[in-house]
Design a protein around this nucleic acid. Structure first.
Length: 384
RNA sequence: GGGAGAGUCGCAUAGUGGCAAUUGCAACAGACUGUAAAUCUGUCCUCUUCGGAGUUCGGUGGUUCGAGUCCACCCUCUCCCA
């Protein structure tokens, strides 16, 4: 039954009584993903500063991200195809999800031009060369990358944006979705494992647009749905409100992926709203920049106050590095610009994020998630 | 003993009559949410109600409306010749 169904499967295992949180399991050809889950970001095929073995054995990551735009530019499709796909290229044998480049339409807004009928012309941030990303091409690239979960090409509109802009943007995104879906259906995986395509809900902060987006997406027999266009600068309450709204109108039986979120507190709050999957650069980027997340709050490891603190980075952590390295030593590494500092910081933060969602999962199963979440969130926001 | 040169805010540098004074590093703090980020921003002589105010460029004296900048002497250091 499991073989050659060519379908990803999602099974909901338990639900929280006091919130919309749920636990589940996603089956893929590269293994299972237990939700709620956090997915480390590996834009160019590398989770920055973290060795693949550590990612697997210490962080216990179940799925990582790659990025279509970045991988297309470097190493390029010829290399990826010759390698036999990204899994073989980077040595990661568990599931991979690739973002479509939709976020780059937002983050690289200064060096791209949207042509609704064609797609998006990007001017490479590396060498200035021009490249058209059409919906079809974005699927073709993701077929070559071989990601288990491919993302539809979308426009992630900025915040703030006018209703009129958001409405037009959504029309474009929906048009691209239809084309992505058609290409997805008419093409096959290249490497023997199945690939699925997640559509992305857009509509900025306008509920009627979000509704329309969900309505169109629900017509597709997709196996998971992403909520995009969030955490782009809007107030936190508005972000929660939109995520909440989307979760309420999305089908219950499909995994919901909230793209680009977030802080540890954001993740718990959105699990409570019914989100199953998260990704964010925060643990790795902040880890490189000396910002450490713990159950007690955040630490800026560059601060002078850690200079003589020879206690472990995190005495309660089961991560070896958290117990063998002291805060004073980690501070020294960052101050001295030693590469080991960002490596330990990234490893620690990713381990913490996976612990966070793993604990949330257990609390949901035990039926104590909401109480636990309300107690822990204020602590997570503290600055030590 | 003779000759040449140099002393600027932690360090290194810019500045040759209008200057609280350039730049880099260091230091200190902040930011980071589908990664153009091992990045970026701010502070960095003292005080400040953030508008300013007060003291500064080895030392002392002088020229000048005005001196880090010109002059004299002194101190310290570097190099070369003995």
């Amino acid at each position: 039954m499991q073989q050659n169904t060519n379908k990803m499967r999602f099974i909901i295992e338990s639900r929280d009584k006091k919130s919309s949180a749920r636990t589940g399991i996603i089956h893929t050809d590269h293994g299972d993903i237990k939700t709620p889950i956090f997915m480390p970001v590996g834009t160019v095929g590398s989770v920055k500063a973290v060795h693949i073995n550590d990612l697997e054995r210490q962080v216990k990551a179940q799925i990582i991200l790659g990025n279509t735009y970045h991988l297309y530019l470097r190493p390029g499709l010829e290399v990826l195809e010759a390698a036999g796909g990204l899994h073989k290229f980077n040595g990661w044998s568990r599931p991979i999800l690739t973002d479509s480049g939709g976020f780059q339409v937002f983050s690289l807004s200064g060096i791209r031009k949207i042509k609704p009928e064609e797609g998006v012309w990007f001017q490479s941030h590396i060498d200035g060369s021009r490249h058209l990303f059409s919906p079809e091409k974005v699927i073709d690239i993701q077929r070559i990358i071989g990601s288990d979960i491919m993302m539809a090409f979308d426009e992630c509109p900025p915040y703030p944006c006018t209703y009129e802009y958001a409405r037009k943007s959504l029309d474009i995104t929906l048009g691209w979705l239809r084309r992505c879906w058609a290409r997805y259906k008419e093409t096959e995986p290249k490497y023997g494992h199945s690939q699925t395509l997640f559509p992305i809900v857009q509509g900025s902060v306008f509920k009627d647009l979000r509704s329309k987006s969900v309505e169109e997406i629900t017509k597709l027999d997709c196996e998971g749905i992403a909520i995009g266009g969030i955490a782009v600068g809007e107030p936190i309450d508005m972000m929660y409100e939109m995520a909440d709204y989307c979760c309420q109108i999305l089908p219950q039986d499909k995994p919901r992926y909230l793209m680009g979120v977030g802080t540890p507190a954001d993740i718990l709050e959105n699990i409570a709203l019914g989100v199953d999957m998260f990704d964010c650069v925060m643990p790795t980027r902040n880890g490189r920049n000396a910002n450490i997340f713990t159950w007690e709050g955040m630490m800026n490891m560059r601060n002078e106050k850690w200079k003589f603190d020879f206690s472990p980075i995190d005495a309660n952590s089961d991560l070896e590095a958290d117990r063998i390295y002291s805060r004073a030593y980690l501070r020294h590494l960052y101050a001295a610009n030693e590469i080991l500092g960002p490596m330990i910081g990234s490893l620690h933060n990713l381990h913490f994020y996976l612990e966070l969602v793993g604990t949330a999962r257990r609390k949901i199963e035990e039926g104590t998630f909401s109480e636990w979440k309300n107690e822990i969130v204020p602590k997570l926001k503290r600055k030590l």
